[in-house]
């Protein structure tokens, strides 16, 4: 028994911490692994729905990773993809039901994109690549990390788009709307960019983030 404890690594060993921090930069699910793009772009018109979406994905990624990892030794390999799909679908339905019950406005704004978390490749990708081979605790951290990495990009894009939109303000969850562009600017004739709220701007904002990230980190550049 005591031997087993010795072999076990501490809860927050450097290796485990990297599982959380790597997805923020070098292994970011969106800008580097190119996973989960669909929802990242579609829900970023405003900050608040993006925030709720990020929370939902973090929850589904972390809990799902843990469940798969706990079950990993029992899952028959022939139906493992189906089992993973069932677990994601279960969690996503729960998230959807909870949003509908307690955060109705946001659930209306997210509409079908909550359902599309099921096919968000981040989840299936992490379940298959990480949780099937690792213990529950690292899997949980990995899910959390990837969820955060995804959420970070989501929030960046959403903040960018909302600030430059004609309203010039930021709708923070729990705080209400904050005016970012001062009224004086509008009085002087500043007009927000109507483009920012239209779909193509999401793509261009992500491209800008990728540009910045890759020019700082040359390992990531493609040939």
């Amino acid at each position: 028994m005591s031997q087993e404890i010795k072999e076990r690594e501490p809860m927050f060993s450097p290796k485990n911490m990297r599982l959380i921090t790597n997805p923020f930069n070098k292994e970011n699910p969106i800008t580097v692994q190119v996973l989960g793009i669909c929802s990242a772009l579609a829900v970023t018109v405003k900050f608040e729905p993006a925030f709720m979406m990020a929370l939902s994905v973090i929850a589904v990624a972390a809990i799902g990773n843990t469940i798969i990892s706990v079950l990993r030794n029992t899952i028959p390999s022939r139906i493992r993809i189906i089992v993973q799909l069932v677990v994601v679908a279960l969690l996503v339905i729960l998230v959807d039901q909870i949003l509908k019950a307690f955060s109705y406005d946001v659930s209306k704004q997210l509409s079908v994109f909550v359902g599309l978390i099921i096919t968000n490749c981040i989840l299936m990708g992490r379940y298959e690549a990480f949780a099937m081979q690792n213990k529950p605790w690292p899997s949980f951290l990995d899910g959390l990390g990837n969820g955060f990495g995804y959420g970070l990009i989501l929030l960046l894009v959403a903040a960018f788009r909302e600030i430059f939109s004609p309203s010039g303000s930021l709708t923070l969850p729990f705080f209400g709307t904050v005016k970012i562009v001062p009224q004086a600017f509008f009085d002087m004739g500043y007009v927000g960019n109507g483009m920012a709220i239209l779909p193509p701007m999401a793509l261009i904002s992500v491209a800008i983030i990728i540009w910045i990230q890759r020019s700082r980190n040359e390992d990531l550049q493609e040939n």
Binding site: L203, A207, I210, W211, I212, R214, E222
Partner: peptide, 15 residues
């Protein structure tokens, strides 16, 4: 531009 190669430029084209 090098940092935009591949993924980045595809995003911009799509936009």
């Amino acid at each position: 531009p090098k940092p935009l190669k591949g993924l980045g430029i595809t995003f911009i084209i799509t936009g």
